[in-house]
Design a protein around this nucleic acid. Structure first.
Length: 785
DNA sequence: GCGGACTGCTTACCT
DNA sequence: ACAGGTAAGCAGTCCGCG
């Protein structure tokens, strides 16, 4: 193969690389590469540290095959990756102070990067689903036989099989799947795929028959995209039925009978049901273009669909770029190194102690792309950090900070410390100094900063292009997709420098980013206050200040940006032609109750340049899923009344009224008082047993719920319960066992009044709200009023 | 034996 | 299997107490 075609998918088998591609006739073909050798790299300086005997020893053990010194600055050590001794070799090298580079790579990943192989975007997609014998009840992967399968192509062609002979059924599935580049299912990573593989194993069918087909679990992607905004979408869960209802206004095919009964008595309905599930997933994708976007991201970064994780995408993207520049990156940490990395806690964003209160005309400013901006501005990267300065500079910073937390340190003291340190460590001004007193060279651009810069630049371009294109056209969809792609990648760059399992992990780097973010935020607070605007709250990249006059806002916004850019450039001697920092004026609340860190609620009237009028809340009870329905209703009602201008006395009367109504409630409805809590881990991992865990224990024994898996993506079951006696640790019942008894005192104190009181205390601080908590105490005190 | 102070666990949220 | 920061509620423990 002279001109390498775009590749659909690639894998390796010890010493061979398999490249799947489409020929001129659009047929799927495999190209096998037999003469590509695995290697890792070390720098030339590191190579000198390796004793010759060590290399000879491992060469004699057939671990080291060859040494390639042809590249600038690096030596490639060609090895037999499948020798177990390789790990001993790498460890031994580390003992000599040698850092093996990119020694974690698979053979195929290495090949794709070295040969700059492009990824094909024209993938043939099949949506698949299986049905299994459900007579035994409960779900256990591979326990019962598969009754049928269906695949629906993106061209709409349907494939379906159902037969007695399961072995043949599975063979047919492998055959049918093989014409697709990728098969897409719903929760298929945890159900369909492992089920099929288990049953294939049972029938001694070679699993490699499915090797050539990538697999995507569509549910997992949607969970990632929509889990944070479920309530906005009106989405209560991620069953296929629920998601279809919300996005497609359609439901799954209804059936009264069990799957097995359909298989026995109503084969047509089973077929319809099975195929329909595939179609639903297809229609979801047709509507949202999710796979289209994922495929774009893969082609852009040089990754494959079945390894679609931000970390993996970025890794490929960075590795390819650095290879082009003739650089090799660190090896991913071993399990032990990763555990070691985790022990070190990295400081994150700045959260100001809020000045709580009920405010008029609260304005929110927001740093656009805060962390990407910092990466670019200070040329941050592993390749630009001056390690010679780093050690002493770190010690100086630690000594100065002492046991204080950085957010508690006086801002001017911090500023002065940094200015002094700059003189000490970098008198010739050859570096950018970050707010954690680390120094990044100015003269060569770091890999990640140029990538992030490129990504942000691209994003601007796509946004510009979007304005010129017509909505609904393919070009528009393309541009928007790419805009999303570059945004996600730029924003994730920080994440991988703080990820203990990543080759880019480095606390000096990630804290250079986060703590400089803290510094910028506090600097902007200082500037706001210099202009007479008191900052009331701030979280990471946002600043809250109350300003009555709308007319001054455009001017203030402009002024703040000029000042911020000037100050930052001056303090850190950033030699930037254009202004990097973009502090946007983002929101206006006509009224806002600022309750606590990460908790506020108010009337939003202006957002991102548009007039709006809606209740907007963060972290308050109405947004939390474990709030009971009754509280949600009363709480929101009270908020509306307060926003509507309730006076103190009116609020007091309202609380009294609510209290009375609640205690006079004769037959509480279960629905109103159900507490919902989710399990987060396997039962054996629990150290304490709260009410929902106690209930779950029994449910688990009775096989009514399934054990929570350790994987992060797989949420545990939700437990719906009611507290009947708060004193008793077993004073709770499941919603289905509700007999009409609730612990009224508990519900009033904890579930209903407590959230209300948090608001009332802030809005009407002069009243002693505590006495309305305890029923008995209230009765007593009311005797005297 | 019981209650208050305290610690750490758990869940769910915010940026 | 990209991060840290935080509130609230409560389980569990320790301690004092003639």
């Amino acid at each position: 193969m002279k001109e390498l075609p775009k590749v659909i998918y690639a894998w390796d088998n010890k010493y061979k690389v398999f490249l799947l591609y489409r020929n001129k006739k659009k047929e799927r073909k495999i190209h096998v590469v037999k003469d590509f050798h695995w290697y890792f790299a070390v720098t030339k300086e590191d190579y000198e540290k390796i004793p010759k005997e060590l290399l000879t020893k491992y060469a004699n053990w057939s671990v080291v095959r060859n040494v390639d010194k042809t590249e600038d600055g690096y030596v490639k050590i060609l090895c037999n990756r499948w020798s177990k001794t390789i790990y001993g070799f790498l460890e031994e090298l580390k003992r000599y102070g040698v850092k093996p580079l990119e020694a974690d790579m698979s053979l195929s990943k290495r090949y794709l990067i070295d040969n700059e192989i492009k990824i094909d975007e024209n993938l043939k997609i099949g949506y698949f689903d299986i049905e299994t014998d459900d007579r035994n009840g409960g779900i256990e992967i591979g326990r019962d036989r598969i009754l049928s399968w269906a695949i629906v192509g993106d061209d709409g062609i349907e494939y379906y099989k159902s037969m007695e002979d399961e072995k043949q059924l599975l063979e047919k599935f492998a055959e049918a799947a093989d014409i697709f580049d990728v098969i897409v299912g719903w929760n298929s990573l945890n159900f369909d795929m492992p089920y099929i593989l288990k049953r294939m194993e049972l029938h001694n069918i070679d699993a490699s028959k499915l090797q050539k087909v990538m697999h995507v679990d569509f549910m997992m992607r949607l969970v990632k995209l929509f889990a944070p905004i479920m309530s906005i979408l009106g989405l209560s869960g991620f069953s296929l039925n629920e998601v279809s209802k919300v996005f497609l206004k359609r439901e799954k095919v209804q059936h009264e009978e069990k799957i097995y009964e359909m298989y026995e008595n109503n084969k047509e309905l089973l077929k319809e049901y099975n195929i329909n599930d595939c179609k639903l997933v297809k229609e979801l994708n047709d509507q949202m273009k999710t796979l289209f976007l994922m495929i774009k991201e893969c082609a852009w970064t040089g990754s494959f669909l079945n390894k679609f994780y931000v970390g993996e995408l970025l890794d490929n993207y960075i590795l390819r770029d650095s290879k082009q520049h003739g650089h090799y990156l660190p090896t991913k940490p071993t399990v032990e190194e990763e555990a070691q990395n985790r022990l070190h806690k990295i400081t994150g964003g700045y959260v100001k102690d809020p000045i709580t209160g009920f405010y008029n005309n609260m304005r929110v400013f927001d740093f656009k792309s805060l962390y990407p901006t910092i990466i670019i501005g200070y040329n941050i990267g592993i390749d630009t950090l001056n390690r010679k300065i780093a050690v002493q500079a770190r010690l100086d910073f630690k000594e100065w900070l002492g046991d204080r937390k950085i957010e508690k340190v006086d801002f001017d003291e911090w500023l002065n410390f940094l200015l002094e340190q700059k003189k000490k460590h970098d008198p010739e001004d050859k570096h950018y100094q970050t707010a954690i007193n680390q120094y990044f060279v100015k003269d060569t651009k770091s890999i990640i900063s140029s990538l992030v810069e490129n990504l942000l630049e691209q994003r601007k371009e796509y946004k510009k292009r979007l304005d010129t294109l017509e909505e609904g056209t393919t070009e528009f969809a393309n541009a928007r997709a790419m805009q999303e792609v570059v945004k996600e990648l730029a924003n994730s760059m920080f994440g991988i420098t703080a990820d203990a399992s990543s080759r880019y992990y480095d606390p000096l780097i990630s804290e250079s980013i986060t703590i400089t973010g803290q510094f910028w935020n506090r600097l902007s607070a200082k500037l706001f206050e210099g202009l007479g605007h008191k900052v009331l709250y701030a979280d990471t990249d946002s600043i809250f200040t109350a300003i009555d006059d709308d007319a001054i806002m455009p001017e203030l916004h402009k002024k703040m940006n000029v000042m911020l850019n000037d100050e930052v450039k001056k303090i850190f001697s950033l030699s930037l032609e254009k202004d990097l920092i973009d502090l946007e004026y983002e929101k206006k609340y006509e009224k806002l109750m600022l309750l606590d860190k990460k908790r506020y609620i108010g009337r939003l009237v202006w957002s991102n340049g548009k007039n709006v009028r809606l209740l907007h809340s963060r972290g308050t009870e109405n947004v939390k899923k474990d709030t009971i329905k009754y509280t949600r209703k009363v709480f929101l009602e009270m908020i509306e009344l307060i926003l509507g201008g309730y006076a103190c006395q009116e609020a007091l009367d309202y609380v009294k009224k609510q209290r009375k109504e609640f205690f006079e409630l004769e037959t509480p409805i279960a629905e109103d008082f159900t507490i919902v809590k989710r399990l987060s881990k396997p039962m054996t991992d629990y150290k304490t047993f709260s009410r929902h865990v106690r209930l779950a224990k029994t449910l688990l024994k009775e096989n009514k719920i399934v054990e929570t898996k350790k994987m992060k993506v797989n949420w545990g079951e939700r437990i719906y319960f009611i507290v009947t006696d708060a004193i008793d640790t077993n004073g709770q019942c499941l919603i289905e066992n509700f007999k009409g008894k609730i612990d009224k005192d508990y519900y009033w104190r904890i579930q209903i009044f407590s959230p209300m009181r948090r608001i009332l205390k802030v809005v009407y601080p002069d009243i002693d709200w505590d006495k309305y908590e305890d029923n008995a105490r209230y009765e007593q005190s009311s005797l005297f009023t």
